[in-house]
């Protein structure tokens, strides 16, 4: 019963977060300076100043408002917007009219998700494994070396890290392309290999960039946890280092790391703008950035709602799975 109540509470909270987020998303871009219709009119006016009368301009304005779904007062627009969002219909992109926003997002999503889910998980796994070993055996010299690697990588700005990797692996030693070329057509074995090959450098830079923090965080947790009484007790019972490191230290130290992992996964639909720019990699980040710059409300709504949805869902999943990892929550204590 307690569990059911817990799940229902979390679910109501989840729906509330979505509603508030979606509402803010509607009003916020309208407070931004810039208006797609006026941008369009300016462009036309520059070419047609001689021939476009005030009436013709107004006619054009009305017709665009209808095409873009911007007719009516703001509350009418808001009502229509909520009805559309439920159907995952974000309307047409203003910049690429009449291309539906959902198409643009659906095209970009697999690239963003594929790259960021893979790199986030790998970075978490590798970073935490190294951090655990470095923390558990913190008196050993090689553990210090592993920690130094994390300390060196962590503060390097991503942009610089990416450029150094490009210089090393694509310019001086030309193992990978400087910019990817993804070929069209159905998915085949060769195409899959080509995607992995072309995505290798962006993925590597993201793993390296996320890896340092995981090493340092897990190492600090492992050092503290291994001194806890239950770990000492296990040692006195004669368990091996490996058993204590994995079953005792890691299981307890990983809780904050899991929180960080799930929230990172929730944020992946923000995209990775810098990666997309530096590597001309397809994805949602640049789409969102360009939409904000051009006043393309609909595209901006779509991309932000996707992020709200994924972050809120990640938080919900975290709430729901946390009892599995932490018996104190499961037992209500």
């Amino acid at each position: 019963m307690k569990l059911a109540q817990y799940v229902v509470q979390r679910f109501i909270g989840y729906l509330l977060v979505l509603f508030i987020g979606i509402t803010i998303t509607f009003f916020l871009p309208r407070l931004m300076p810039g208006d797609p219709i006026n941008n369009y009119i300016s462009q036309v006016q520059a070419r047609a100043g001689q021939s476009l009368s005030a009436e013709a301009t107004q006619q054009l304005r009305d017709s665009l408002a209808e095409l873009y779904g911007l007719q009516g007062d703001i509350f009418t627009q808001y009502r229509n917007y909520l009805a559309r969002v439920v159907r995952l219909d974000f309307g047409p992109s203003f910049t690429y009219y009449p291309e539906p926003v959902s198409n643009i997002l659906l095209d970009a999503m697999p690239w963003t998700a594929g790259l960021l889910i893979t790199t986030t998980l790998l970075s978490w796994l590798i970073g935490n494994s190294i951090g655990l070993i470095a923390g558990y055996f913190n008196k050993r010299r090689w553990a210090t070396i592993l920690e130094v690697v994390g300390i060196i990588l962590y503060p390097i700005p991503y942009y610089i890290l990416a450029l150094v990797v490009i210089l090393l692996l694509a310019y001086w030693i030309a193992l990978f392309p400087l910019s990817p070329t993804f070929l069209p057509g159905p998915m085949t074995w060769n195409k899959a290999v080509s995607i992995i090959y072309n995505s290798f450098l962006p993925a590597l830079t993201l793993i390296l960039a996320g890896f340092g923090w995981n090493v340092l965080a897990m190492k600090a947790l492992a050092v503290a946890t291994k001194e806890d009484a239950y770990v000492q007790f296990a040692r006195l019972k004669g368990t091996t280092d490996r058993t204590r490191m994995t079953n005792y230290v890691f299981r307890n130290a990983m809780l904050p790391q899991i929180t960080a992992l799930v929230l990172s996964l929730g944020f992946i639909f923000n995209g990775a703008i810098q990666t997309e720019v530096i590597f001309s990699y397809p994805g949602i980040g640049m789409t969102m950035r360009a939409a904000a710059g051009a006043g393309d409300y609909n595209l901006l709504y779509g991309a932000i709602i996707l992020t709200i949805f994924s972050v809120a869902t990640a938080a919900l999943i975290l709430d729901l799975i946390y009892p599995l990892f932490d018996p104190r929550i499961r037992l209500g204590g």
Partner: peptide, 18 residues
Amino acid sequence: YKNFGDEQTRTLAFIKNE
């Protein structure tokens, strides 16, 4: 026609006759 990325990457590609 291809987008070779941001200016630093483009410069490297240009040097390499890409």
